[in-house]
Design a binder for these strands. Structure first.
Lengths: 134, 134
DNA sequence: TACATAGTTGACAAAAACAGTAGATTAATA
DNA sequence: TATTAATCTACTGTTTTTGTCAACTATGTA
């Protein structure tokens, strides 16, 4: 399951994508409209800014907006950013790989299966972007 | 990611499946061969017994063994038993469904996408069984 | 019957992750 | 310069995960 953090992030990004043409959007507005705890949302948006997905402007007329276009942000990217690996096992993760201690990957049936699951999942999550959510 | 619990469970089940013809297998043996903390493994096997996957025999010559044949145990079943939902969102889970508070499922792009992911995942995990792991 | 073997049970606890909070600070702009 | 709004650090409480302990119960065999 996705963490609340990632779930909130998706909701916020959907809202931002809807309002994209209207300039910067206030954290408080997103928080209110999407029922996301304000301070928690701050942390989330900050993380998305640090990683180059969003950008923000301070002061009057400020708020958050997309740095890259929503079309170029696959869902998988957001999930990895906030939740870490998408794969079900560390030994099967592309971006967070860790070897299995006590198992020979080449002869591990679980390993094989989890690769199939990973690929099926990524095929969808790498293709769908934030823009597809609205 | 799967929890350690589920990862250990799969390792233990793989071992049991290999030794299936040799009668009951000791917890201690599985623990040693698969490097799983003994007491943790006890809990896991007990859970699998309670839910009818495994059975055990006490006393000399005792140990754990399959109650159902490994062929009839989909990986999805084990994962749901020990980790809960397989779906990435509660509003998309077949077995642990919970409605989204603040969103109309019919018009939610995220919802749609996550259903596609869920179906792709389940297609694999419902088909592959413990017997396929060995 | 007695003993050794082996699983059962429930309570407990350390560590990590998750969810959320508080408050002071910094920056933009009118 | 006053106001608005984002930034940052640090902290807190809860839950989940991971793992441990000790006493108990059931079984097979000598």
């Amino acid at each position: 399951m996705l963490s609340k953090k990632t779930q909130y992030a998706f909701k916020a990004l959907m809202y931002l994508a809807q309002k994209e043409s209207e300039g910067p959007v206030l954290i408080a507005e997103i928080s209110k409209k999407k029922k996301i705890p304000l301070k928690f949302l701050e942390n989330i948006l900050l993380e998305l800014k640090r990683s180059g997905v969003l950008d923000s402007k301070k002061g009057k007329g400020g708020g958050y907006f997309f740095k890259e276009t929503p079309k170029s942000i696959p869902l998988a990217k957001i999930m990895r950013l906030l939740d870490g690996p998408i794969a079900l096992l560390p030994c099967v993760s592309l971006n967070f790989y860790q070897r299995c201690k006590n198992c020979d990957e080449k002869n591990c049936g679980l390993h094989e299966t989890m690769i199939v699951v990973r690929d099926a999942t990524l095929k969808i999550l790498e293709k769908k972007t934030v823009a597809d959510l609205v």
